[in-house]
Every structure is written in structure tokens, then in C-alpha cells.
């Protein structure tokens, strides 16, 4: 069993280190970048990675590393608010339906089921294209709403499980209000299950934002995000600038990998 344990902490540790590392670099990128991300330099265009340009330069001579630092910030900003809004609403709905039960529970869960049956990325693409209003807040609202059902489901299951326990009946006998029980008695105990769900939400949000912007329905043309940069980079793949796409894509992979390892580790620690 000792072997198993070492592997479990290994996932968590690597995930934590990777996530902290990526988030730190991205946060630094909001205040300082090695070069001005928008500065064009004709003398240094389409360079391969080197010590002066860690990820090389693009077709206009802009430093790709600086641009990635900035663009990943947009991606992370979107992911943060999608998870914040989606999980807050989802946990709230799950708590209500799980704790109170009854007809509201049945109806809301049926709606959640039919929404989750459809691939959320497909729904997001269609809705964003129909709205036709590119920008990070549009992406945030659409994705946050589409993410609600998955959080609601996890939260509901936990509330249903915990409300049957004795200490909850006791709290009820003592006259605690349903709101108090839901927020103060159940929520802290549901947290070990909600936390991995929130972490995996980051994973999905980064992936969704990148897909949306890659297809051109996500952020607007003036906001650089990882997905938009990758679709830009894709045009220069064939003309011999593979570094651009590889570095941007690699950054997306590292971000997602960090969150998924962290979620995996959190889930395993719970057991």
C-alpha cells in the first residue's frame, strides 16, 4: 500500500508545482514581460527559440514568450470567472435541490441532464456564434452557464449523502434553519468532493476557451488569448514557423496538465 501512497502524493505534488509555476509566470506577465508583446521588430522576425527569445519570434518579429505570458493571462482570467460563477451557481442549485428535494429537485435535475447530454463545447460554439459578440465577458457568461449543471450534479449528490447523517438531524432538532444547515453544516463537509470538481472545472474552462477562440468565436481580435494565438500560429505552420504553434500549444497543455494532475491528486487523497 505504501507504493500506492507515494504515487498519489506524486500526482498532487507535480500538479501543485506545475500549476503554481504556470500561474506565477502568467501573473508576472500581467505586469512585466521580457519584451513589449506588441512591439514589432523587422530585424528579428521568425526566429527560432534562443536565450534572448525563449520561444522565438513570430512573423512580425514580436517575442512569442512575452505574447504567451500576456495571452495566457486572458485565458486564465476567463477560466477563473467561468469557474467562479459556474461553481457558485451550480453549488447553490445543487444544495437547494439536494437538501430540499421534491418536485423542484426532479425538474431541475431533468433540465441539467438534458443540457449535459449535449457536448458543452458544441453548445458553446453555437451560442457564441449566434450571439456574434466576441469578447471575454461573452465567453465567460456563456461558459459559466453551461458549466452550472456539472457543478450542480456533484453538489447535489453530496448534499443528498450528507443530509442523511445524524449530526444534521441533530442540528435540525436544535432549530437550525435550512439555510444555516446548508451553508455552515453541510458545505464544509462537502468541500473535499467539491474541490476536485472545481479544479477539473479550471481544466475544462481553459480547454473550452482555447477551443472557442481557436475557432474564432471566443475573444475579440484585439484580446490575445492562447486559443486565438494558436489559430493565428496555425497559418504559419506550413510556411515553416512551427515554433510559434508548438510553444503556444505547449503552454495550453502545461496549464491543463497542471490542473488535471492537481484534481487527480485531490481526488486520490480523499480516498
Amino acid at each position: 500500500m505504501a507504493k500506492q501512497d507515494s504515487k498519489q502524493t506524486w500526482f498532487f505534488k507535480v500538479g501543485l508545482i506545475l500549476t503554481v509555476f504556470m500561474v506565477t509566470i502568467i501573473l508576472i506577465g500581467q505586469f512585466w514581460t521580457p519584451y513589449d508583446p506588441a512591439e514589432q521588430n523587422v530585424a528579428a522576425k521568425s526566429l527560432s527559440p534562443s536565450f534572448s527569445h525563449l520561444m522565438g519570434t513570430d512573423y512580425l518579429g514580436r517575442d512569442i514568450f512575452s505574447r504567451v505570458m500576456e495571452g495566457a493571462g486572458t485565458t486564465l482570467f476567463i477560466a477563473f470567472f467561468v469557474v467562479l460563477l459556474g461553481s457558485a451557481a451550480g453549488i447553490f442549485i445543487g444544495a437547494l435541490t439536494g437538501y430540499l428535494g421534491g418536485i423542484v429537485d426532479t425538474v431541475l435535475m431533468k433540465i441539467c441532464d438534458s443540457i449535459t447530454a449535449f457536448p458543452s463545447i458544441l453548445l458553446a460554439i453555437i451560442i457564441l456564434k449566434v450571439l456574434d459578440r466576441p469578447g471575454k465577458w461573452t465567453v465567460i457568461w456563456v461558459l459559466a452557464i453551461l458549466f452550472i449543471p456539472s457543478f450542480a450534479r456533484v453538489s447535489r449528490t453530496e448534499y443528498v449523502r450528507i443530509k442523511k447523517q445524524n449530526y444534521i438531524s441533530l442540528a435540525r432538532l436544535e432549530g437550525a434553519s435550512p439555510a444555516r444547515i446548508m451553508a455552515l453544516h453541510i458545505l464544509p463537509n462537502a468541500f473535499p468532493v467539491l474541490l476536485p470538481a472545481i479544479t477539473i472545472g479550471f481544466n475544462n474552462a481553459v480547454l473550452a476557451e482555447a477551443s472557442m477562440s481557436f475557432l474564432g468565436v471566443g475573444v475579440s481580435a484585439t484580446e490575445a488569448s492562447l486559443g486565438r494565438m494558436l489559430s493565428d500560429a496555425q497559418n504559419y505552420l506550413v510556411t515553416g514557423l512551427p515554433w510559434y504553434a508548438l510553444c503556444v500549444g505547449g503552454t495550453i497543455v502545461l496549464l491543463i496538465l497542471g490542473f488535471s494532475l492537481l484534481a487527480e491528486g485531490l481526488q486520490q487523497r480523499r480516498k
Binding site: F11, L230, L246, S260, E264
Partner: peptide, 16 residues
Amino acid sequence: QIVMAIPSFFVAILLM
């Protein structure tokens, strides 16, 4: 765990 973190559109670019 690593493969899961690679979005399919980036797999596509890598394959290309």
C-alpha cells in the same frame, strides 16, 4: 494523464 491534457486541436497541429 499527459495525453488527456492535450486538446484535440493541438493533437491535430502536432500530427500535421
